[in-house]
Design a protein around this nucleic acid. Sequence first.
DNA 1: GCGGCTTCTGGGGTTTTCCCCAGACAATTG
DNA 2: CAATTGTCTGGGGAAAACCCCAGAAGCCGC
Lengths: 236, 236
Amino acid sequence: MTILFADDEDRDRGWLRSLLETNVKEHGPFHEAHDGQEAVDMALKIKPELVFLDIKMPRLSGIKAAELILEKLPTTGVIMLSNFSDEVYVRQLWKIVPPDGAFGYVLKNASNEQVVEACKAVLSGDCWIHPGIARVIQRTQNRATNLTSAEYEALVCISLGMTDHTIAKRLFLTEKAVQSRLKSLYAKLGIPGRGEGGENEFNQRCRANYLANKRGLINQQELDEWEAKLGAKAGA
Amino acid sequence: MTILFADDEDRDRGWLRSLLETNVKEHGPFHEAHDGQEAVDMALKIKPELVFLDIKMPRLSGIKAAELILEKLPTTGVIMLSNFSDEVYVRQLWKIVPPDGAFGYVLKNASNEQVVEACKAVLSGDCWIHPGIARVIQRTQNRATNLTSAEYEALVCISLGMTDHTIAKRLFLTEKAVQSRLKSLYAKLGIPGRGEGGENEFNQRCRANYLANKRGLINQQELDEWEAKLGAKAGA
DNA sequence: GCGGCTTCTGGGGTTTTCCCCAGACAATTG
DNA sequence: CAATTGTCTGGGGAAAACCCCAGAAGCCGC
């Protein structure tokens, strides 16, 4: 039984280590990585049966790391760890996991039992998804609530605080096109228009922000990365 | 040496327990609470010398718990644990800690050494503040960047997606007053006005949101609580 | 090949947000 | 006491955001 786990924080590595030591029979020494790149390197060398990957790690995200590992070793069991129940990540993960691969997605506020459960499931070829994410997954498959990439793009832009005009220039669109994207975005998020809100009238732009954050469609870290990307483009 | 720690997550209690067991000499059995209320009850009974409190806990937040404990037992050493480097919390904490009290503030991504360090500091009557928060504390004391409560209130409202008109009604102000608050808020966050942004024109409302989140002035959990409060008021 | 969907386009409108200006009042501070 | 700061007040104006409408191009599945 070869197990690798990757996390950049002392606390979480310690957590996993003691958890696995007491719950996995016939465990060998565990292999620990401190970031995504190290995890990939180690995985390719030791060919573990099971890999735990934190999503947020320096150098290489857990998602990317999983992609690289599964590319070479598609039968590896992968369990993602995350602080967030974010739709963004579930989305991304869905794309890279082989259709018949075994993987798990557990939130970091999971109980010890849940982690052990996920561990067993993945080792026996099943998937284990944290209860808190079940509804998220439903949403990614629902037409009426699942955002298209155009809408998502617009969402990111307004979340960064751009005006319609600025967005149009950045994405090479007309302002009308931007407004069109926003309109359908608001609709999918279920934000009432002017006059439909009764006593609670909303500023749709800001409301979209709030709801998107709440649903985990976006989060601060993701936005910061976008900001870096788009900001650089703007500087040129 | 009597030590109490309170956290609602398996992982973090496990972390603290093993950390303290290996690093604190002559430790007795540690006392563990699972939420804020339990922490207060236990503290009043066992009168610990040191208390670890997670900020985000069910029933009673760590901040409130600290307040109640310090009220009765002002000499207790308190170490707050947080996932965030949020200004909101530092602010609140500042108010309730007795001027000569010893307390610590450590982020949950701290290394094991840092926690031990904080522990020692507080036990010997010093304060220990996580490096990542030093600048936050500076900001809370800087005139030009520290928000007044009026500005903060406005910030929360726009982050929830309210319009000027809705805010005015909720807070019993004129719309002009709301705009006045927003204007100074934008200024303190350093958001350029119309025409001042050059190529990057901003929607100040949304930009304020983004920056406030980035600085930890607000976060999703806090907003959700406000939403519940203000939403209830609106329903009536 | 036909509907269905998304996306972009355009005209022409209302409301909201933000801008500049200036004044008044209370509380704090030197 | 004066000076400063935070807050609310007001008028009037420009720009942005949002509203309705309708049409056309492209892509997909049936």
